[in-house]
Amino acid sequence: MAEPTKATDADALSLLSLRGLTRRFGGLTAVDGIDLELNRGELVSIIGPNGAGKTTLFNLVTGLDRPDAGEVRLDGHRITGFAPEKLAGQGIARTFQLGRVFGNLSVMDNVLIGAHARLRAVQPAVPLIGPLLELGLALWRPAAVNAEEERLREEARGILARFGERLLPRLDQPAYSLSYANRRRVEIARALALKPRLLLLDEPTAGMNPTETTEMQALVAELKAEGLTILPIEHKLDMVMRLSDRVVVMDDGKKIAEGSGEDVRNDAGVIEAYLGHGLSRPQADDRETAA
């Protein structure tokens, strides 16, 4: 794997940069030459009809899938095709479209897994015998290891406190016993425990009722205000318009529009993508805005 190349001054503002990112599945090009710049502290929403390639794009950025062409840079360093576990160490955290909490782990353990990439005391950076040392330290647990664990637990409680009394009373309950909305919250808490530089949210409010959606929207706004760089996929246009610095619209794997919420909303190509090709069937498909 290529060593990350040196960052240049021009990239000083840019945190994530995608160039010509392409992924083909057989005859289908799911992601087709996507370019994207995401600056530090920005919130850029990705919208588009189902099957537009949004989640595939996420998978390419987070290393769960490898692009056929193009490159991904984080902070100016090339990270194309890096393994997901490595990217987690670089500060990229994501949530999943359908929610992927660890069902049999307690709420606390789920969030602690989020902090796994930040473990230092128990994961000495020694080549070759590093894993064996990790096993030894896990069994022996010297003071430094215990202190680190305690600190992360404290931090996890702090993160869970963001959700008020939703999760705090349920710290030791297995995640499978939680309500759907609470599982989504646990996922976000897990992502925050990574202390991400870049947070990718795949439909954070999917399947939530209006109250829950409003809460989630407030949380995302709060995270943005704290300076976190966020890249959400979102279908609820209300939320997209309110939170986004910019909006990127995808259709058929391509970026068909980019700009402020207002610009994108009035873009002819976007309207066509959402309302059916040719505008001949204006009422054809409003699945994206409804949800």
Partner: peptide, 11 residues
């Protein structure tokens, strides 16, 4: 429980 999510979190 979920190896995909585990990898995404650095395991």
């Amino acid at each position: 429980d979920d190896d995909v999510a585990a990898r995404a979190y650095g395991l």
